[in-house]
Structures are given as structure tokens and as C-alpha cells.
Design a protein around this nucleic acid. Structure first.
Lengths: 130, 130
DNA sequence: ATTTCATTTGAACAACTGTTCAAGTGAAGA
DNA sequence: TCTTCACTTGAACAGTTGTTCAAATGAAAT
């Protein structure tokens, strides 16, 4: 059974002094949608690896397929979803089509996450933290 | 059919001068795995909304359920996956259990993505750019 | 002790998404 | 023009994941 939003009296959860915190502009539904699509595109090892490769410089499908040890079709499918979220751009160069990360912002996102991942202490499984 | 990794001669794709680019330490498989799990957890509107709410300050399950107009069970399930990726922490406060974003790093990730999403020009569908 | 309140959990089901493969496209070279 | 090369695409299938609901837990109040 769903609750009615913002209806009943507030359940004074936290001690008042916690409600201070950050001042944040309300987030539009559309921004949420867009951001979560972006994250979802990043949320697949096979695609993230591709981005990590592209972070070293642009590369064509054949080359990526070679690095990944997978066929072009598979790579191309992955690049398709990355492209649909504007994470990568392509341009033709002779017989090949080169892909590159779309912009610095993406580079940062990927590196931040990878950096965080490299130093993060594995997943939590227990019931309660202390 | 899969290609053998790093086998055959390189397919001189890009013009040599593009291969310059960024110098990047190789990324471990584990970092990729961890980072993509993190992204996947963020890649669901329902969960991302929860994080956006928590970005305004800690909150209990009842409160979140009220804001979201959904039942506690649903919220709790979402918090479970957020917690399994260390995105949120919980602590008991009387009868309630309060959740909060795990650390500043997460706050940044969420805001960066939301900011980017708010100014990004929708998804690409066309075949070729230019 | 017993009940109640706040939250968690497991299981089932439906929806979604990644992979695979065969067929299609289109630029470049012969 | 015909062929080849590099890449893309649609469709099918399987594995994954979010939602839902009923039952379980566990701290606090009676």
C-alpha cells in the first residue's frame, strides 16, 4: 500500500539539529531521468572498460575489439549505447571510424569513480554497522 | 567470433598525432567491477531520487516513504542496494533509523551528474554527427 | 511479557538489458 | 561497377534487476 505524498504529519525522525545540512535546489524529474540513464550506461563493466580505453586516446572499433578480445559487433553495440548517452563521439578517418570520450566532464566522472573504486573497502553485507 | 587479444598487427586507425593524448595508469579489473557496480546503483531513478533527498540532510525511512509517495518496504529495498554499495549509512535514532549519504565523494558524484544532466542537450538518435 | 511501531527480508513475477549472430550499409579501392 | 573492408543493425534469447507483498525482526512502550 502506497503512502500519500506529503500528507500526514511529519514523523519527527532525526533530532532537529540534523536537519540543518546542505542547502540544495530541488531536482527536476527530467534531470533525475537523464542522470540515471547516464549512470546506467556507465554501469556495465564491458562499457566502462571501453571508456577506460578511450581515456587513453581515441581509437577505432577494430582496435577496441582487438584490445577487448571480442568481435566488432559486440563492441559496436556497446558503443551504440555509450553514444546514445553522449558519452562518446565518432568521426571517420579513412576506412576507420574513431571514437573518443565526448568531453572532459566524462573523463572526470570515469576517473573519479575508478579512483574511488581503487581505494574503496569492498561491499557491505552485514546487517547493521555497529 | 572473438578476436584474440593483442595479437595481430595493429590497424593503424587514427593519424599518429592523435595517439598522444592522456597518460593513464592501467585500470584493474577489480576497479572496473567496483566502479560499474557503483554506477549501476546510481542508475535507477527511484534510487537516485532517494540520494537527492538525502543530499538535503539525513532522513528516516518513514519520511522518505512519505516524500516519495511509496511504501516503506519499497524504500527499504532501494536503501538496501544503496547501502550494499556504501552509498549511504544508517544509524538508529530512537524508534527511527536515519539514513545519510556516506561521504562527500558521493555527494559530489550525484551533484556533478545532476548538474550535467540539467544542462545536457538530450539524447542522440541520429546516425552520424556531421 | 506482550503489543506496537519502524523497518527489513525473501520470494515470485514482470520488465529490462547485454550478448550473440546473421544480415545490411556504405565508403574506398580495383 | 564490383568487391572488399569496417562497421552497424535488428531480432532472439538468456541473465539480471526492480517491484510487490506477505511474513519476520527487533527496539520501545505498555
Amino acid at each position: 500500500m502506497k503512502y500519500a505524498a506529503k500528507k500526514t504529519s511529519a514523523p519527527e525522525c532525526a533530532d532537529a539539529d540534523h536537519k540543518s545540512a546542505r542547502r540544495v535546489p530541488p531536482v527536476s524529474d527530467e534531470a533525475i531521468e537523464t542522470a540515471s540513464r547516464l549512470f546506467r550506461a556507465l554501469g556495465e563493466p564491458s562499457r566502462l572498460r571501453l571508456l577506460a580505453l578511450l581515456a587513453q586516446g581515441e581509437s577505432c572499433v577494430t582496435e577496441l575489439a582487438l584490445s577487448e578480445g571480442d568481435d566488432m559487433s559486440a563492441i559496436s553495440q556497446r558503443l551504440r549505447v555509450l553514444r546514445s548517452e553522449n558519452l562518446v563521439v565518432r568521426r571517420r578517418s579513412g576506412k576507420h571510424i574513431n571514437y573518443a570520450l565526448a568531453d572532459q566532464h566524462i573523463v572526470d566522472l570515469v576517473f573519479n569513480a575508478l579512483a574511488h573504486a581503487s581505494e574503496s573497502p569492498a561491499r557491505v553485507k552485514g546487517t547493521f554497522t555497529k
